[in-house]
Simulated scan of single mutants.
Amino acid sequence: ICAGLFGGLIPFLLDRMKIDPAVASGVFLTMVTDVVGFLSFLGLATLILL
């Protein structure tokens, strides 16, 4: 859900800032999905261990 949402939102925002979305959106999308995955993994581990 998060990757789909940001996959559509990031290129739109980059286009409005006059940055080529084809070049820059991959980096930002990868960063967002990695951060969300890492935080959700740590959140689940915290819930299980506590």
Rank of each mutant, 00 (worst) to 15 (best):
I1A: 15
I1L: 14
C2H: 12
A3S: 15
A3W: 10
A3G: 15
G4W: 03
G4D: 13
L5V: 15
F6P: 00
F6A: 14
F6V: 13
F6G: 06
G7W: 00
G7L: 07
G7M: 06
G7T: 05
G7P: 07
L9Q: 02
L9Y: 02
I10K: 00
I10C: 01
I10P: 00
I10A: 01
F12R: 08
F12T: 06
F12H: 05
L14Q: 05
L14C: 01
L14M: 05
L14S: 01
L14P: 01
L14N: 02
L14V: 02
D15K: 11
D15Q: 09
D15H: 05
D15A: 06
R16C: 04
R16H: 07
R16D: 03
M17K: 04
K18N: 11
K18C: 04
I19C: 05
D20P: 01
D20W: 02
P21V: 09
P21T: 10
A22H: 11
V23L: 09
V23E: 03
V23P: 00
V23D: 01
V23R: 11
A24S: 08
A24W: 01
S25C: 09
G26H: 05
G26D: 04
V27S: 08
F28D: 02
F28T: 08
F28Y: 13
F28C: 07
L29A: 13
L29S: 11
T30M: 09
T30I: 07
T30W: 02
T30H: 00
M31N: 11
M31C: 13
M31V: 10
M31P: 00
M31L: 15
T33K: 03
D34H: 04
D34F: 09
D34L: 15
V35D: 15
V36N: 03
G37L: 07
G37R: 03
F38D: 13
F38S: 14
F38Q: 13
F38K: 14
F38M: 13
L39T: 12
L39A: 12
L39E: 05
S40R: 05
S40D: 12
F41N: 13
L42A: 12
L42Q: 12
L42P: 01
G43N: 11
G43V: 09
L44Q: 12
A45Y: 13
A45W: 12
A45Q: 11
A45E: 10
T46R: 10
T46Y: 12
L47P: 00
L47W: 11
L47T: 02
L47G: 03
I48A: 14
L49I: 11
L49T: 07
L49D: 13
L50M: 06
L50N: 08
